[in-house]
Amino acid sequence: MTKDAPLLIERRGDVEWVTLNRPGRLNALDDRLTAELRDYFERLYRRRDCRIVVLRGAGRAFCAGLDLASDQARRFAEGGLAEAMDVQRDIRDIMLAMRRCPQPILALMHGAAAGGGFVLALAADIRIATPDTRMNAAFIKVGLGGCDVGASYLLPRLIGASPAASILFTGRDLSADRALTLGLLSDVVAPEALESTAEAYLAAMRATAPEALRMTKQCFNHSLDAPSFEAALAMEDRNQLLLGNEPAFREGRAAFLEKRAPRFDQP
């Protein structure tokens, strides 16, 4: 992997730091970055060597959405219905793979998080931002609908219907402070504290049993869509019974009784 690749992946133990690397275009999505993001997240589904993913942007922004000067945007606008649908699916499949993969995803946001870049952050599980972060559903500002690549599904579930409507219908900027108040962000921190804040979350998650963490994300997302309280309880029951028969629970119980930290990574 070269430093000028559109997607940089740095391995730190069992955590992968994934950096959108088109800083000259504010990390806007073109064909190559779209393909690499989609392929990366789709491959995660069956990987157990990677426990957690951190997603961030190089340079002055997180991601400015679709690069309207790219060949990808040209094909969407001029290529006819079938080609436009291919472009649409190429991008929205990134978000689908992010929600489907069992690894928790932390999005570290700064500068612009617009359009598809905003939805990349919505598809993550935990969002941490700097005060200069500006989020919006920019699609509606260029003649498209404000509901795109998962925004109409994810945003109302994260902040409620009325605040989501005010963002999707207008394309107005959402500040980091307002996003924190709405519950969209977990933290707003100074740029120099962004990585250390993420490390604190990583340390807490890495202290859990690996399979328990994976199944917690699965159950959490299932419950967001559950048709009833009983359906959510059924998934929770299933997960706890499966995990209760794993060695990690026996180690966790022994550690609690012995008043020590559990050693989940040991056989």
Rank of each mutant, 00 (worst) to 15 (best):
A203I: 11
A61S: 15
E211C: 04
S70E: 03
G160Y: 08
D90K: 01
A204L: 14
L106H: 01
Q240L: 15
G183A: 12
A84W: 08
A123R: 02
L154Y: 12
D14S: 11
F139C: 13
A209S: 15
E258H: 09
L257Q: 08
A190M: 09
F118D: 00
A28M: 11
R92F: 10
D173N: 12
L224Y: 07
S186V: 02
Q72R: 09
L122V: 05
A248Q: 14
E42T: 09
Q103V: 04
G117P: 09
S223L: 05
E83V: 00
G116K: 00
R99Y: 07
S152I: 07
A123S: 15
L26V: 05
D187C: 13
K3C: 01
H110R: 09
M1Y: 05
Y201V: 11
I91W: 03
F41E: 05
M98T: 04
L106A: 01
S70T: 11
M235V: 14
A232L: 12
N136L: 15
G111M: 02
S228A: 12
D148Q: 14
Y153L: 07
A161V: 08
D173M: 13
A84D: 11
R178K: 14
A113W: 00
R75N: 09
T216V: 05
R253I: 13
P156G: 06
A35M: 06
R178A: 15
V188T: 04
G146Q: 09
R22C: 03
C219G: 08
L233C: 12
A179G: 07
A129F: 05
E192R: 13
R60C: 10
R260Y: 06
D4W: 01
P104N: 11
D86V: 03
R253E: 08
L144I: 04
R22P: 04
A61E: 13
T181V: 14
E236Y: 02
D173T: 12
Q103M: 04
A198W: 11
L194P: 10
R134G: 13
I126A: 05
I94T: 02
D39G: 06
R32Y: 02
V149P: 05
T170W: 15
V87W: 02
G183C: 12
T34G: 13
D30V: 10
L7C: 11
A176F: 11
M1C: 05
A232N: 08
A138T: 14
R178L: 15
P104L: 08
A165E: 11
L154C: 09
R214Y: 15
R178W: 05
V53T: 05
W17F: 15
E10V: 01
P156T: 06
K259P: 01
R75M: 05
M1V: 01
D67P: 07
G145S: 15
R89I: 02
A204N: 12
R127S: 06
F118P: 00
F264G: 01
A209P: 14
D237W: 08
A97H: 01
C63Y: 01
L66A: 05
P23D: 12
R178N: 11
L29E: 00
Y153F: 03
Q88C: 02
A137I: 08
G160V: 10
A248P: 07
R43N: 10
R178T: 14
T133A: 15
